[in-house]
């Protein structure tokens, strides 16, 4: 089982995740700028930012404990482990046995937990506010996320990601049934909340009222900030790949040969770019919602996924 090739795949997967993540966020910024009719920074800007940050010295607050330094490392590791479980370019992940959808959700939760913890460590009110809002959003997101996963799992009969993507791809176009779309829309809304996009949180601002994710990492600088930014981008990539490869898994390479993988990679990039465009469209068209209207938004996604389950049962007529 643990052959050389599967090791190769794993390492290749890690490299892809680390490499593609900044590219994806750069592209989304570019598309957003395009919609706002301005030129916008080049798509490789994130790479330059990270390189710049790597060279900078870091300034650390005095009343900080070891958690502040450990948090970026742990969240990076958690996101990367989650990345291994999600099929990006090959359908049966060699390490798929290690966890399933629920494990991915909880790994994301672990990363979020430590970032919020670090935000409290510095003792500034920004960090506290960011942490509290992040956990507030998280506690609304998780049930909706769980239900949408169940909608898919019910259809296929298992929560193992590679198993799902293989099953959905083998079903071909027949898979696109009403509950499939309902689940996708629900998961899309959750993706917005999870990656901190406009209606829920504004990634591009430092205004304390609107930033949730930014507030948490306000205290970081230098290399630690670089790692944190990279983690955020990787998380965004993973959520998009989750959306892409669970709902539209066609084009994923089923066996290990150079041509298949290359094709799968190209198809994967196209898919996440389309998703990124969709996200950018949403960002430019809506304004940021007040924090206490978010429960309504996320209960919409909760209901959508619940409808998906119910309709799955009604459609199946069981």
């Amino acid at each position: 089982m643990f052959t050389l090739s599967s090791l190769g795949i794993v390492i290749f997967q890690v490299i892809i995740i680390v490499a593609l993540a900044p590219l994806l966020s750069g592209m989304i910024k570019k598309i957003k700028a395009f919609f706002q009719i301005r030129k916008g920074p080049s798509i490789f800007q994130p790479y330059y930012d990270i390189a710049k940050l790597m060279r900078k010295d870091s300034v650390v607050s005095e009343n900080v404990s070891w958690i502040f330094h450990a948090a970026p490392l742990i969240s990076f590791a958690a996101i990367l482990t989650a990345g291994l479980l999600i099929p990006i370019y090959i359908s049966d992940m060699p390490l798929g046995f290690a966890g399933d959808l629920i494990a991915v959700v909880y790994l994301l939760a672990l990363a979020r937990f430590f970032t919020a913890l670090a935000s409290l460590d510095a003792g500034s009110s920004f960090g506290g506010m960011g942490g509290s809002r992040e956990m507030f959003v998280a506690s609304m997101v998780e049930p909706a996320l769980m239900l949408s996963i169940f909608a898919i799992a019910l259809n296929v009969g298992s929560t193992n990601l590679s198993f799902i993507s293989q099953a959905v791809s083998s079903m071909g176009l027949a898979a696109v049934s009403p509950y499939h779309i309902l689940a996708f829309v629900a998961l899309f809304i959750i993706a917005i909340a999870e990656t901190g996009r406009i209606p829920v949180d504004n990634p591009a601002t430092h205004l304390e009222l609107t930033m949730i994710h930014e507030a948490m990492i306000l205290e970081y600088s230098g290399k630690q900030l670089a790692i944190v930014e990279l983690t955020a981008m990787m998380k965004q990539l993973l959520v998009f790949s989750l959306l892409a490869n669970i709902f539209f898994p066609w084009g994923i390479a089923s066996e290990i040969n150079a041509a298949g993988i290359a094709l799968a990679l190209v198809v994967f990039i196209i898919k996440i770019v389309i998703l990124g465009a969709g996200m950018a469209l949403v960002e430019t068209s809506t304004a940021k919602w007040r924090l206490f209207r978010l429960p309504d938004l996320l209960s919409v996604s909760l209901m959508l996924s619940f409808l998906a389950i119910v309709s799955f049962i009604i459609v199946r007529g069981v």
């Binding site: 790597m54 990076f76 482990t81 291994l84 390490l95 046995f97 290690a98 399933d100 929560t159």
Partner: peptide, 24 residues
């Protein structure tokens, strides 16, 4: 449905991937 979860391997992956940013 081949649903499986191996806690020890998750832990091992975490440790491995922890070392990367630490080295950086």
């Amino acid at each position: 449905g081949q649903i499986s979860m191996s806690a020890p391997s998750l832990f091992v992956f975490m440790l491995v991937f922890l070392s990367i940013p630490l080295m950086v």
